[in-house]
Amino acid sequence: MSDNHAEHEEHIGIPGYIVIFLILVVGTIFTYFSSFWDLDSIFPGANTLLALAIAFTKMMFVILYFMHVRWSSKTIWLAAVASFFWLLIMFAFTMQDYFTRVSGVFSA
């Protein structure tokens, strides 16, 4: 295990991890303050979209650096991408219902 840790620390080192941590903290603070802005006046759901964008960015930092996916094998990359694909399936098929409830292809 100690060998593994040493190997991982070579990637970005302790200072690198601290930087990533600070990015996550800044992202969290940014999410909090952005919720006070009235972005929904631009288009409905803009506030939610911004919050999700920040969350997605933070998640990418966690996956790539904290979980070491950036330096992992292609199999690990495949697993990571597949999980997003599955998430996409869940969203797409659920929204397929919501988007066709009123003005769907077969509704009156």
Binding site: F93, Y98, R101, G104, F106
Partner: peptide, 10 residues
């Protein structure tokens, strides 16, 4: 209460 279109796809 799911949409008919979604039902058809599923």
């Amino acid at each position: 209460g799911q949409s008919v279109f979604a039902g058809l796809v599923f």
